[in-house]
Design a protein around this nucleic acid. Sequence first.
DNA 1: GCTAAGATATTGTTCAACAATCCTCAAGAG
DNA 2: CTCTTGAGGATTGTTGAACAATATCTTAGC
Lengths: 214, 214
Amino acid sequence: MALSTAQRVADTLRDRIEGGGLPPGTQLSEEALGRELGVSRNTLREAFRLLVHESLVVHRLNRGVFVRVLEPADVTDIYRVRAALETAGVRAADGAGPAARAAVTEAVTRAERAAADGDWQEVGSADLRFHRALAGLGGSARIDSAMDRLLAELRLAFHTMPSPRRFHEPFLTRNRALATLLENGEYGRAEAELTTYLDDARQLILDTMREAAS
Amino acid sequence: MALSTAQRVADTLRDRIEGGGLPPGTQLSEEALGRELGVSRNTLREAFRLLVHESLVVHRLNRGVFVRVLEPADVTDIYRVRAALETAGVRAADGAGPAARAAVTEAVTRAERAAADGDWQEVGSADLRFHRALAGLGGSARIDSAMDRLLAELRLAFHTMPSPRRFHEPFLTRNRALATLLENGEYGRAEAELTTYLDDARQLILDTMREAAS
DNA sequence: GCTAAGATATTGTTCAACAATCCTCAAGAG
DNA sequence: CTCTTGAGGATTGTTGAACAATATCTTAGC
């Protein structure tokens, strides 16, 4: 047993949440889930803690745990952190290792290839990898894991998005432009472009959320 | 009962760790601690998970939890994140609210007053508040809590520092200089100064750690 | 001195029970 | 009719004991 039971349960729940089987706002009942997954309440609670740590669920005392509902304010907040971490990566790009730099270009290429195949799900994944690679230029394990958590959180908002294509297509060329700026060492321009890029993406998500809410 | 039992247990353990009662590397035995604090093993394990989340302890499968031992690599990593979050705050200072800006100056003043009183413990606390206020200029709740966790982690390293005065005194005037730059709207210079400031502080900690290890 | 098998201690997980808290909903006062 | 109040039911919070799984320590054998 390489992984603890609690971790396996957390993996299962994470898949269901990200797959849409457990929509935001759903309460995760200890008794029902424990019976279904064949684990005790204590172990299930241990799994809940892991998901709380990833911000995929929230825990309200004496109320239980619920699948996280992302408010517009959360999206704004997340993009503030992303701007801090990703621009820090761009500023550190000069001193980053070749592997970290290659990961940026690699992600852009894969996104373009997926777009050509019409696989917009994969475009979305590649886009996330691209931004994780940007933050990864910072060369910090803590930044990497923080970025992973942020993007997992953001995925909760993507579930309410109607068309992945509408959201990801406009950013394909901007991703490539950013990667090129980095390859050419134009870090100042890259940082400026990244800042407006993130502002635009945030605004697009917020508009879509408001639209879906009405 | 406003807080759960697990949270109260986590609070007392956190106090002991930060107070030095539980030095880094100490194993937290479930049976011994549970008996001493009068809580069941299950509740204690729940408290452990909270502390793991704060990175104050590490959990090794089938081995138990241990008070975190900060390696030099951790210090380097932490300062990379601090640089990202604090410089992001400085860059956002122009649009920050008056309360957030006042918190920066306030922390500097309190540090100076404590130094005049010779209370170097309090100088250290005020210094942490100063840097938390810098990151707070970013206006993001997630950045604020991330910063809190980072500083709590760093405090583990401070325990091995022999003299708080030796570490904090040289930064008093630099803190004031930074605050003045921010008040005058010289954000570019403030960011540059902050970057070298953090590099110097990191180097000082690393040197002290290496010295203590030999 | 080294390796391997067994003994011991600790953690991982389950279970059942009870306490504490929150939510629902109906009854009553204004 | 609205608002408060309280009882009831459902869910979570916590406990203690038991057993399983794993790591560490001890010891026997070479």
